[in-house]
Design a protein around this nucleic acid. Sequence first.
DNA 1: GCGGGAATGAAATAATAATTCCATCAATTC
DNA 2: GAATTGATGGAATTATTATTTCATTCCCGC
Lengths: 289, 289
Amino acid sequence: MSETAVAELPRDFDELRASILSQRESLPKRIAQIAAYALDNPDEIAFGTAASIAVSAGVQPSTLIRFAQHLGFDGFTSLQGVFRARLRERNSSYEERLNTLRVGDGTAAGNHRILDGFLTASRKSLDVMSRTIDEATLDRAIDVLARAETIYILARRRSYPVASYLAYALGKLQVRNQLVESAAGLDPEMIAFATPKDAVLVISFSPYAPATIEDARGLAERDVPLVAITDSAFSPLASIAKLWFEVAEADFGGFRTLASTMALSMALAVGVGEARRAGRGRGRRGGHA
Amino acid sequence: MSETAVAELPRDFDELRASILSQRESLPKRIAQIAAYALDNPDEIAFGTAASIAVSAGVQPSTLIRFAQHLGFDGFTSLQGVFRARLRERNSSYEERLNTLRVGDGTAAGNHRILDGFLTASRKSLDVMSRTIDEATLDRAIDVLARAETIYILARRRSYPVASYLAYALGKLQVRNQLVESAAGLDPEMIAFATPKDAVLVISFSPYAPATIEDARGLAERDVPLVAITDSAFSPLASIAKLWFEVAEADFGGFRTLASTMALSMALAVGVGEARRAGRGRGRRGGHA
DNA sequence: GCGGGAATGAAATAATAATTCCATCAATTC
DNA sequence: GAATTGATGGAATTATTATTTCATTCCCGC
């Protein structure tokens, strides 16, 4: 009957912290020591081994296990799980939600669930972009595009809506641009005019439209600077482009959102607009650096 | 003398990614497979065990070790270290950024501020839609569209990207649809074919494109059911349409997002797809209720 | 079609890490 | 001030996990 165990075991990091803080007074010395260490160095707990943590916290490995058991876990490993979950949680809260929202089954509340699914997927995409966007790439991409005489926009199929919005936005901002879209036909002539003084903004996601890749390759060979938005480092665009963004869109019911791609595109457009305005003021427009 | 080792071992995640990408072509099949998996699921690599990762990547544990050695590490463990370091790094820099955002909000560097602005505006739009969407309208709209023989999609300028995505999605779902877009030209003939057995999905925001409104009005007069997505009760579409959604998109720097309009459109598309599938099973397709 | 060499899968083995056990120590109560 | 209870340190044990090895397959050049 030595089990004083505090009954409810913390399921996530916040509960765990609360649990520790509430018992703080009554904890034995060494346990309190490791408790303080854990709250101060959560990453250490998440990644370390019982032995390594014990050393840097100045206790014995067995104390770690006692600590875990005091909190209601059955061992160090499950305690560590909570610290690890905390690090990945930033994505996974959405995952859960999306899993409960499956498309196919119910007919009744079904439609609302579908909308919820897309809203959740969109939010997730936006969050991922907030976290992962590389500021330096963004700056350089805007710089490249701002120097271009004409921006060629290359996108087909699923990415095409983004391209058409880009064309609209750039037009509004009075940035010369050319949307290359038609499945067949005039594209070759269109892009034939592009020179190294122009730039291409190409958007393509797996499965990459072959025509887009071909066009992009052709342009790259003629030294037209390429800025790409794509979905993986293994995209053919990643190896061709001067600069590329990796965008991970969440999907729902087999359709990926375009939320973060859209946001990025708009930021590029407005960024270019601003750079142009600033540049023109200083008489730098069209310069070749 | 089996050590082909590629000399320099990557010290951080970026170097590692670069290294993988540069060798991408020459990697053996299974190694390439785990390489792609690693770049797509870095968190898995950081937390998992060799065995668990092997299972979810569909390879043998030994392949993981070979992969690590190909990259110059002496084993899986040290490779994993790089993935873990990245996670700590990213986590701390993410928190840092959140802090600086809260503290000096207007001050964030220019281009990044623009992107943040669009991301925030998009999130806001999604939140508003979550709260305000009327479920009954959604159900009825999907019902109307699902009964249509052909769905005509009407949108221009700023709304056009949404329309083009709808056309794409409906096409994928094998729902017959007709995108009406051209600024000049063939539209009159296109929509001349529409009958009350069809339906129109029209999207327009202030300032409403005159051509869209005219087309919509003409179709309504001929009793073609109209579903509209627009931005206010004062929109000319609100009085014409059989059903309409009010969508309030947040804006940044003079550009409105399309995030919630997109989400709604995708929900409509998928909802129609689902209804069709269910309806066809029960032989209800094309009925007129 | 036939070696030769790399790549792969599966299982054995080695290493590492978590957990348990026990002797000792400290504190509290009678 | 002895006895009891709980806490602690350290080492033994057990479990898990990485790594190695070896047999087999696949691919490429002849």
